[in-house]
Design a protein around this nucleic acid. Sequence first.
DNA 1: TCGCTTCGATACGAAAATCCTATCGCCCTT
DNA 2: AAGGGCGATAGGATTTTCGTATCGAAGCGA
Lengths: 303, 303
Amino acid sequence: MDFRILRRMGHFLAVAEEGHFGRAAARLGVSQPPLTAQIQALEAELGVRLLERTRKGARPTREGQALLPILRRLAEEAKQVESLARELRAGRHAPMAMACVTSALFDYLPPLVRGLRAAAPDSALAVREMDTADAVEALRRGEVDFALARLDRDRPPLRVMPLGSDALVAAMPEGHALLDEAGPLPLAALAGEALVLLPRSISPAYFDRQVSACREAGFEPVAMREVGSAMAQLAFVAAGLGVALVSSGMAVLRPPGVAFRALAGPVGSVGVALVWNGERETEAARAAIAAARGAFPAAGDAA
Amino acid sequence: MDFRILRRMGHFLAVAEEGHFGRAAARLGVSQPPLTAQIQALEAELGVRLLERTRKGARPTREGQALLPILRRLAEEAKQVESLARELRAGRHAPMAMACVTSALFDYLPPLVRGLRAAAPDSALAVREMDTADAVEALRRGEVDFALARLDRDRPPLRVMPLGSDALVAAMPEGHALLDEAGPLPLAALAGEALVLLPRSISPAYFDRQVSACREAGFEPVAMREVGSAMAQLAFVAAGLGVALVSSGMAVLRPPGVAFRALAGPVGSVGVALVWNGERETEAARAAIAAARGAFPAAGDAA
DNA sequence: TCGCTTCGATACGAAAATCCTATCGCCCTT
DNA sequence: AAGGGCGATAGGATTTTCGTATCGAAGCGA
């Protein structure tokens, strides 16, 4: 992946926003002819025409318009790279906080928080809800002291203390035909259904477990759409746009329009674990380890 | 924005992922010495050491680790740009991107999504769950086409179409003494309770409505702790660490450990609205406006 | 109708950035 | 002690990006 294309995308953004090559060139600090050449190179590389040149300037084509939202996100994140680099230069430290995946908010988080509070009543604790992938990054970055996330083994430098096992359950729109039969559902019954999946990048182990469970049941999961969060996943199910495999931790929420059904077997999934950065074992992380041992006696020992 | 530095960051990302300058060079299609030089130039420019060189290769420093997640996102999104360009080349439509607050996921989002799907069955829709403050920024930046958020009036350039009114309800830990009495709860009954609040920055209008409601009931709300998301707010209530005022949209979730009680009055709150950027009224936004009018006939007219 | 202006595009050489190969220094293993 | 593997240094070559000059097309005003 040649990040050089990102620069040209920035050029295109500038032209699209100015509607004029000359003004965009002035904004970018170059002259107009090389800007024209860079835009042409980008169009050649992407294989689409991005700008319609008119007598009065340039405006995005339909394809150019369609790309603008994601290019704006890219530009915003490029700014974040810059500001993060400045923070790193300044040696900034992150405040004490924890991350928690949505599906653990109501089963694992309350006992852990109560345990922490019993040990240190005056301590402030900030909880940031995020998915496993973001939690891993936040731990590595030092933005949080520990996390409740779905990991099944150490990922150096991250240490993982599993707190319990978990099972996948099927989430279906209420009134779905498969709900007519009582009892646990064989996974193969979902073979022809549209699945609402979270992207693999959020939690690869979790995603792969779902895919392998489907394959063991004899079908390839067909991802009809991807959503960005666990809650949005259930919202799509509620809207009648597909079914989902979710952890039993999500089923405790009972959102309207969604019916949960256990799977025959049952089908194991990656459970929730306490996770912390072994290279940065803060006092808060140590307190969380102690509180987790108290709240979840069956939890595995830290390796 | 100096995009040129991004190219070197792409080089850094390759080395960090390979753990080896030689293999990273091969992946990037260059030889090892210029790659070393590019990384050194990047480190000099940032004033931060990104890689620790060892006898067996290289691994990211702490500062380097902190950069990796956002660089990976950039790389991923650059790939998404390329794949979206391919789809556009093939004549397919761009996906719609929308933002949705958590409390609207299960009441307002499903009918809207069904309406959009009825109008354009082949269009993809990406839903990003976020709070009102983030939704406003994403709309301003042109990162999403429209949003479901808690706003009560236009905020130029943002246009607001209220979809319904809303009321605050009290969220209390199960077993709370105030639950002994049946029927709506006078807000003054919460005067001595610890409140779990969302930061004002998330939705100032929503926050101010809560504070003013408490003042009208004769007491100042005492914020014992702040959390980062609506779901985490309920999780703290479930943990027994306070009570919360939440929109009735959150009450439909019925998370374990939390009991909801209507408030006497009742106490109005800022409702959910369809929001879009009036300066960038995309086709997707127009489709959402039409779908909202269909799904919520009582919705206010766009001004 | 004609001349002027404005827009982006082409051409060519200059400047800057990035690359190549050859080789080095260091450290570990055999 | 010798060899191998790692990243670093050095010097020149190549590629990329740029600026300037100029062009072609099209619209506008006299």
